[in-house]
Design a protein around this nucleic acid. Sequence first.
DNA 1: AATGAATGAGGATTCATTCAT
DNA 2: GATGAATGAATCCTCATTCAT
Lengths: 192, 192, 192, 192
Amino acid sequence: MPKLGMEPVRKSALIDAAIAEIGRTGSLDVTVSQIAKKAGMSSALAHHYFGSKDQIFLAAMRHILRIFGAEVRGALSMADTPRQRLAAIVRASFSPRNFQPEVISAWLNFYVQAQTSEAAARLLQLYQRRLHSNLVHDLRGLGVATPGPVAEGIAALIDGVYIRQALRGRAVDPGAAMTMVTRYLDLEVGKI
Amino acid sequence: MPKLGMEPVRKSALIDAAIAEIGRTGSLDVTVSQIAKKAGMSSALAHHYFGSKDQIFLAAMRHILRIFGAEVRGALSMADTPRQRLAAIVRASFSPRNFQPEVISAWLNFYVQAQTSEAAARLLQLYQRRLHSNLVHDLRGLGVATPGPVAEGIAALIDGVYIRQALRGRAVDPGAAMTMVTRYLDLEVGKI
Amino acid sequence: MPKLGMEPVRKSALIDAAIAEIGRTGSLDVTVSQIAKKAGMSSALAHHYFGSKDQIFLAAMRHILRIFGAEVRGALSMADTPRQRLAAIVRASFSPRNFQPEVISAWLNFYVQAQTSEAAARLLQLYQRRLHSNLVHDLRGLGVATPGPVAEGIAALIDGVYIRQALRGRAVDPGAAMTMVTRYLDLEVGKI
Amino acid sequence: MPKLGMEPVRKSALIDAAIAEIGRTGSLDVTVSQIAKKAGMSSALAHHYFGSKDQIFLAAMRHILRIFGAEVRGALSMADTPRQRLAAIVRASFSPRNFQPEVISAWLNFYVQAQTSEAAARLLQLYQRRLHSNLVHDLRGLGVATPGPVAEGIAALIDGVYIRQALRGRAVDPGAAMTMVTRYLDLEVGKI
DNA sequence: AATGAATGAGGATTCATTCAT
DNA sequence: GATGAATGAATCCTCATTCAT
């Protein structure tokens, strides 16, 4: 029963399915058929809408990064002081929507894909640059002398916590993860 | 004229080749043939010695972790105080032998493989537990009240620095990387 | 707003597009979508009008042969003597409308299709028989003793010139082509 | 029961199979699997030896042209006068080895492929140039004033006879075909 | 009349792995 | 010990064709 305007619906379903499958298997060795099946359609249709497997992956990455960005913006909008803004960024990084096993696993795999795919690398760099600039801005607002390296450290710590979470079976503890980064932040800029 | 006692030589060559190829391509999508070719033998021989592709990867991981372990032990052997020991661990993590593009890339890929392979996961967990216990031991020696979380933080930061390095094209800066972790360490335990 | 009586318009557009695409790519590996797109419609509509890809090809062949036939009839209508009629047939074969790269290429491909498709073979045989009978009729009118073989020779030469033209990049020289056949004709029946 | 030195054997079998299959179906729409099966091996092995379907086709073309060239050289070696040499070339063109349904059909298809494949075009042009130069040389030796166009005519006629033969079901008549070209030759240069 | 939606079938190509020599 | 030979099983992708709207 074909309907009109299915493109966005299908694309969205495929993106979700891709993230889910990558997360489930913990690897990029996911076939288009698997993804399509999970999304409830034939692999041919997946190709029809995305053109290639790479494009599906890229779209999935874009989706994850977009959600992340939205989450950060949302958190920032409710923060007033630089210190609150920093906390907001950290909080957003470990929000339930981002910090769940499948997304974390997909995230790790996208890091790997970025080593192969130019487009994936650009996407990831874009996100990193934004995060970095946000962090630097607020660190400077707090009078931190060397905001660059400190921002780097925070970002690295977040990534490190993510990657380690990916290994730790399935039980995810966002609280502990957030605490770890907050603790570092406190040391660098002082408690709020 | 087949020589005797070739087994260790062949195996070693294959392990080096595997790490090199994974590092070069930045992915686990490396064929046994590529690895064998780089190691100067037929893929059939590679299978003869390792039994399967997974075993080659596993051996390569073991190799990297063994080198890492040796590096750490070597550095520790020259350290006297807990503070020096901590610094030694960090230094070893970013030693030239470990912190080079191809090894970093292989490392990242092994993290991914650990999501699929039980054996790989165990290997990585073993290394992490050792690192963790080392860190905790020396942090406690310095009178740190909560050595567990702090050790977690240091380990996560190291991993984070590694993973970010993997993205940053080819230019690796071990100095800056080490500084980043040392800075955190200083904040947590005070300057040496 | 769907218009009435679109069928002939659509069909004609599809036939032209088919010939153009086959000529452009120089092969029968042309998708219905390509043809339909070039004709400005969806591939579904192409199927609606023709039923199948084969039917589109067949219609395109019929179209080319019909044009050719018309061209020949037109030329013949202005010829009075058998000798003039023969010259007219040759001239028509290399008329600008027939002897252009894309048509030549399509022609060659139709020869190939005739090996697979019974219908295509019949179509081509029909055209050949007509040409043959025309030639024989006029050769006999000129007193040629063995009109059959001579007609065969002329037809083969025309085909040969066509096929060779298909290979020679894009620059088509109808003049030289025609001269080649006329020369043979002159040898067989004497100058006009 | 794998043996050594199979490569040439396999390659040769694949080439024969390719020609046979192309000839049998009368089209290039032949799958590698079909070819491989006919050659008695898996399609994977076919790819192993040739790398790609195109390479198989190209090798098949090369094979046909090589045989043709050998046939011509053989015939020429037994000819003394220019007139005899010309006759030899024509005879070779319709030798039983060349002028059989499957080879003819393959030949026609290679003409088509030459429109798509640069390599195929080069191969065919090479053969044509050689034939042309042979013809011109001997025509000149016979005192023909315009050897170029005449050579063109002979070559075109040969091609035309071939292509028409491809259409005429399966019954091949090399005698009639040869007669047709010889007749043209006689007209141009006089009987031997 | 026209099309977006949808898919089954198929095809080139790759690759880990096995085996006979 | 070492390898060329060989393949089954995937996997990506394409395409003619159908169908509901």
